[in-house]
Design a protein around this nucleic acid. Sequence first.
DNA 1: TTGAAAGCGCTAACAA
DNA 2: TTGTTAGCGCTTTCAA
Lengths: 342, 342
Amino acid sequence: MDQKGRRRPVLADVARRAGVSQSTASRALSAKASLISTATQQRVKKAAKELGYQTNPIARSLRLSKTSVIGMIVPSISNPFFTRLVEEVEHVLYENNYYLYLSDSRRNLDTEARLLRAFESGSVDGVLIVPCHEVKSAPSIADFTSGIPLIQLDRPTTCTKFSGVGIDERQSMFSVIKHLKDSGAKTIGVVTSKETELTSMLRLKETEEACRFYDVCLPRKLIVEGEHSISGGAEAVETLLASNLFPDALVCFSDLLSVGAIKQLKDQGIGVPEDVLVTGFDDTPFAELFRPSLTTVRQPVEQMARTAVSMLLEASSSVSHYRLPGRLIRRESTLLEASYQD
Amino acid sequence: MDQKGRRRPVLADVARRAGVSQSTASRALSAKASLISTATQQRVKKAAKELGYQTNPIARSLRLSKTSVIGMIVPSISNPFFTRLVEEVEHVLYENNYYLYLSDSRRNLDTEARLLRAFESGSVDGVLIVPCHEVKSAPSIADFTSGIPLIQLDRPTTCTKFSGVGIDERQSMFSVIKHLKDSGAKTIGVVTSKETELTSMLRLKETEEACRFYDVCLPRKLIVEGEHSISGGAEAVETLLASNLFPDALVCFSDLLSVGAIKQLKDQGIGVPEDVLVTGFDDTPFAELFRPSLTTVRQPVEQMARTAVSMLLEASSSVSHYRLPGRLIRRESTLLEASYQD
DNA sequence: TTGAAAGCGCTAACAA
DNA sequence: TTGTTAGCGCTTTCAA
């Protein structure tokens, strides 16, 4: 209120104004207020208000060795899936009176390592990381030797020193294959992603097992790899078309890939879903907007965020890996009935 | 390296190990290294390395009254346009050795005010805010009386105490209308957005002037307002169809609105672009993916981020408002030639 | 219930 | 070129 064009008031100013010692002022304004007489408390609070006093969080952090900040590293903020994750994490942290330091490793291992090192130096109370790569990111994560907790999100790396939270690939791929089988698919193809080796390998392994389980044919030749992008999906389909086999259904390991795949199929005069069923993975926002809208697996983003944050804040020393169930979202790209309109 | 399961080493440990005073160690490790003899420098750096020493940023911040962190508040992290903005800001900050504190006001004025207050208390060196609302956010922004600089991004509020960076609405709308006129439109309609009153009003005003300038007809009746969402766009079209007039072209004030509008038009058997041309605004990622792909105005996101950050870091005391030019991206939704394929 | 004093880890003014 | 010392703003012993 009474501004006087002066420097920010500090606790000593409040104490002086209230006619008490600085320690009393500190207690009156903090959780220790119960130790202070109500009258004094009142006076201190009044003085603080009049001065427009706010605790300096930096000084507080230094004193307490606690920052109330969580650092988060993602490979790309503009990837809508990571964005959703960041959003949820931010919400959960907010509920717990924590702030978020967000950094983007730009899919670059050096940047990622540098960011990890920066967080290590004590500006945050914990780290949440979506690694760039399941294998190549492992060393810098394993090097994270500061005392603060770290949780791996979404992509489990080969580093097992730290806990992780991700999706249940097995259950997810089983639900996809079951759905395709139920929709009449006999032979399926797979478009995997280059970027995320381990996830893709795991997903592929589960896909193969699911195909075996549901008695669906998955020929070696129909497993193709694409860059993790729209054009990557398109190129993968070209490769696929070059083979003499052709599947009833195409399982893509990301929505991005399936968009590219569908575009390319259409360009070749192959209809989706009339001629081939196509599925994606992630349930990114455009999955619904794209035509045909994408059947895909929705990642349990909110639950992932909640789980990871609570693991972080509880800082339990045991290492564990959570696999949360994905949810199949059925849309036009695998829908054979009349309701498909264009 | 030699870990010994001990507490994090501090500067005093490095000094001791190198056999110098703490201030010498500090200088040797900082930008003031030139003041120190090369030999001593070497010894200090070696000791630091052996101990795995890293400067404690909290203590440093406290001492220097500088955090090297910029706080950013956006109405919704999951909005792809804001995400792009955050991404660019993060990149520019990184180049300048700053970190980003990201917060999401969730389009909620109270949350926004609270976040502003939190930043005011000294945890950041500057604030970048995309306000929730051009009018309603103004009071809490005006209340931001700490000494640190604040820049309004994207949506200029009625608060003129702080600088802002946004798009040049006039130039943008003029380029849209010119393009539509060149494509043969005689009468246009407008779908404005409810959420961003001032921006919409300004955009509308410029649209009207552009129509006058290019001699295009813009009847009052064909100006409709929608919620800032896909369904909002669809509803707006319904309203429009209820009137007896119908435009040659529909100018939507966001990509989201135009997606909804096009969906609704298609459902009514009205073809885009054959029967109506439609334009969006923002050039969000799905503008390209949607069918028909959207003609839209690309916001100069990178430039906005760069401008805002440099204003912030230079902390010039003069208040100014930058209007950066938008760029018309022509796509299928206004393309009448043969190249439109589906 | 309150106060005096120490100290979190760092940098910088001043002195040598 | 280096060391001594003070102090950023806060919380918390310890003592009264």
